[in-house]
Simulated scan of single mutants.
Amino acid sequence: MCYSVGFTRSLGLALLPLALCCIVANLLLLFPMGEITYIQQDRLASYIWFFGGLGGGGLLMLIPAVVFITLGKCSCCWNESLMMCGSALAAIIGLVGSGYCFVISGLTLMQGPHCFTSLGWSYPFADQNGRYLLRPEIWSQCLQPLNIVEWNVTLLCVSLGLAVLEFIICLLQLGNGLVNAICRPCCYKQEYSLNA
């Protein structure tokens, strides 16, 4: 079989822990420092509610992971073309999911946390276009939740990194599927000539 099923399955197995880590990171963003009071009082940054890690990098990424892992279970000849199309479609879904996670995580980082300052609840770093990330000395402006800037920056950077890895894996599989779709007729010709 010309189609590299083993490679695709290994990509699917790599996607599973990345997707689960994205889900965990997004869930932790909902509970700053492990406290539930801020979600109850609607004191979280607005972009956190877009669920970039939970939806895009997590649940949506489970589709390509499952498709890649279960690829080739049926070895019928007519299914091989469907496998290629299915894996390419799943890879595109994964690219969309990881892209969404990356964009939402980036926007949340740029906006900064919603926190209590000396002026009340606000986004103290929203007008800085992310420059606050390079100035940890001003993070103490956020009085509540305690250490919210460090909490958000850590989890959002993790989400960004995971989204990049997911994007690369799905891009690899998309390329793999397209190359195999183009080369498949050549493989059949070679098999036919060898069998003849």
Rank of each mutant, 00 (worst) to 15 (best):
V5T: 09
G6W: 06
S10L: 13
L16V: 10
L18N: 02
A19F: 00
I23F: 04
N26C: 10
L29R: 00
F31W: 09
P32I: 04
P32F: 07
M33W: 03
S46E: 12
I48L: 13
W49F: 10
G52F: 02
G52L: 01
L54A: 11
G57M: 03
L59K: 01
L60A: 13
P64M: 04
P64H: 05
L71G: 05
S75D: 14
W78Y: 13
L82A: 15
L82W: 11
A90S: 08
G94F: 00
L95R: 03
S98V: 07
F102H: 07
F102K: 01
S105T: 04
Q111T: 10
G112K: 02
C115V: 09
F116H: 08
S118W: 08
F125L: 09
D127P: 04
P136F: 03
E137S: 14
E150Q: 08
E150K: 03
L155Q: 02
C157Y: 09
G161Y: 08
L162Y: 01
F167Y: 14
L171W: 13
L172V: 14
L172P: 05
L174V: 09
N176I: 11
N176R: 11
G177M: 13
N180D: 13
C187A: 14
Y192M: 12
Y192T: 11
S193F: 12
L194A: 14
N195M: 12
